[in-house]
Design a protein around this nucleic acid. Structure first.
Lengths: 342, 342
DNA sequence: CTGAAAGCGCTTACAG
DNA sequence: CTGAAAGCGCTTACAG
């Protein structure tokens, strides 16, 4: 009884043409108030809902956007609760504009055929690198995109990035301020132009500024996942006389790291100070609570949608810039403390 | 150059009719090998991709499913990383069947018009109660659904539940086995038929079995969120001479609880033993690592998709039962320890 | 203010 | 083995 009500049925019952029904539905054209209410009444009664596919077929618009996340990099999406918060931000923003969100995991071979297949209105793309084939394919699609955490060099692209360099700088500076001089970093893969790359740059800047020499041995390129953090702890064990602080480029990896250190008899912050990155919602509840670089992930999601909708149909709330840099801040908590000679 | 290639263009260039092109695309009807390869060649060259909306208009199928999550209950979805893992499970399962996943947050007023609007093929619905209006609307939609964590009484519905009662029982039994007699529970709202309700039932069964009297004062119906856990800790402070263990019905709330206890000078497990529920991926990395009831959330997602696809077109991998109960197990870690007289 | 008609891109009987 | 034609549900000029 539910499914097959179409604009024709409405038209028949209301004794009008389908064009008129269409006009009523869309509030277009001139229709007499009488007709409008007559038609609307029948629409109500029959629980009529216009078919998205029929509309889409005319418009070539789908009112569908996708959040595209690379599922390749282990330990990035797998366990970062962070993305859930981001996607929630996107979904809730999109809902207010009657746009729905498809979730898309891609791997390096993705050809994005679904984009045209479904006439997607736009894409929010998380963490791509500009030299990858995936990125090139994306561009050739020629549809509205917002790139997140991708640090694209071309200013024509709409993108949202964190001020990662500042984050790297702030965290490091904080540790230096506490008297630490031998500061390790758990960076994840350091691909030029990537998020971790910029954080690392910030780290280096802070070191330079304080006249602390750079030491490549202090850079751990382990995955910024919980396991990555845990594994690094073992390696750090052998450095323990030297390293007094570690800056982990994700909170999740900091958790693994702290636990790993614990398991080899080192405690935080007594033996080592730790700074994380992200400020995921439970970092402040950990024991010790985590000193970290805070970013507003929900805002990131919301800005991303607005920026995208703005490109699609101008309904965004007037974000005029193509490139938004989200500020970071330092949340000082218990996992970092003053350096003490041993 | 990309967008407007249609079946007509292919037909023209291949000197065949659009019907033939359609047949080639779908591998239907009889088409000569020559024609097939000629058509396919042109399809390749033009990067033709069939329009999902046109197909959908004919079929009334969309190859789109939705994961429907109620955004009402604060502290459930907001911060449980758990759902992210679930959704990933669904997405990856769906992808293998060329079905895409829409993420849908709903509130109590949702009328599900998008379901017919988009001709969704099916729904995976998380945590609804059968007496709610939302549930009734869902049923009147008359489309394939799989209900998760909903414990529906009608066996005709396809559903996947955890053995929540067993979970509640196991966790409590574990604490009793350690010598605890005054065991608090952080349950979240105890609505009959809900997940927490069954866990609580299991808790009661374990108590009865050991001849421990039930004490309503030990049941904290705080939200099983991190803040809920934290707040309960304050209240528990006044009971501290009595309560020696707490069973929190989510790991997330256990984290908040442990921190809350810490902040009032109680440490885990020295002063109180804690058991969580879910076994989210970092529970084992916490200090102390969390004793918890483990459930396989990724499996839950995958079974959900299979069950749904099976209903839709029989491509699921032959799950014949309508109702799947996922087993739980106990992961004993550091947050629980033997009861000691004070 | 309203309607008849074309057309979006596809699939599906039906002829041949 | 292939093609002409109808039709899925809608929107959009265009007449009137």
């Amino acid at each position: 009884m539910n499914n097959k009500v179409s604009i024709k049925d409405i038209a028949r019952l209301a004794n009008v043409s389908i064009a008129t029904v269409s006009n009523v539905i869309n509030g277009k054209g001139r229709v007499s108030p009488n007709t409008v209410s007559k038609v609307n009444k029948i629409i109500q009664e029959l629980h009529f809902v216009p078919s998205a596919s029929a509309r889409s077929l005319k418009d070539m618009k789908s009112h569908l956007i996708a959040v595209v996340v690379p599922f390749l990099e282990k330990g990035m999406l797998q366990d970062n609760p962070f993305y859930w918060e981001f996607v929630r931000g996107v979904e809730s923003g999109a809902r207010h504009h009657e746009v729905q969100v498809i979730l898309l995991g891609i791997d390096e071979n993705e050809d994005f055929s679904f984009v045209r297949q479904r006439h997607l209105d736009g894409l929010i793309v998380v963490g791509v690198f500009e030299h990858t084939p995936a990125f090139q394919k994306l561009l050739s699609l020629d549809i509205p995109c917002v790139f997140l955490d991708s640090h694209l060099s071309n200013p024509d692209f709409h993108q949202i990035d964190l001020d990662d360099e500042a984050g790297g700088y702030l965290g490091t500076k904080h540790l230096i301020g506490l008297g630490h001089k031998v500061i390790g970093v758990l960076t994840g893969k350091l691909e030029e132009g990537g998020v971790n790359y910029f954080r690392h740059q910030g780290y280096l800047r802070a070191l330079r500024e304080s006249g602390i020499p750079e030491d490549p041995e202090l850079v751990f390129e382990e995955s910024p996942s919980i396991q990555g953090g845990y594994q690094v702890a073992q390696r750090i064990g052998s450095y323990k006389s030297k390293i007094s602080a570690i800056f982990a480029f994700s909170d999740v990896s900091a958790i693994g790291l702290i636990r790993g250190l614990h398991d080899i008899g080192l405690s935080v912050p007594a033996n080592l100070s730790i700074v994380g990155f992200d400020d995921i919602f439970y970092s402040q509840y950990l024991i010790p609570s985590l000193t970290t670089i805070r970013q507003d992930i929900v805002a990131k999601g919301q800005i991303a949608v607005k920026m995208l909708l703005d490109q699609i149909d101008g309904t965004g709330l007037g974000i005029d810039k193509r490139s938004v840099k989200i500020p970071v801040s330092l949340a000082v908590r218990q996992s970092s403390t003053s350096y003490k000679e041993i």
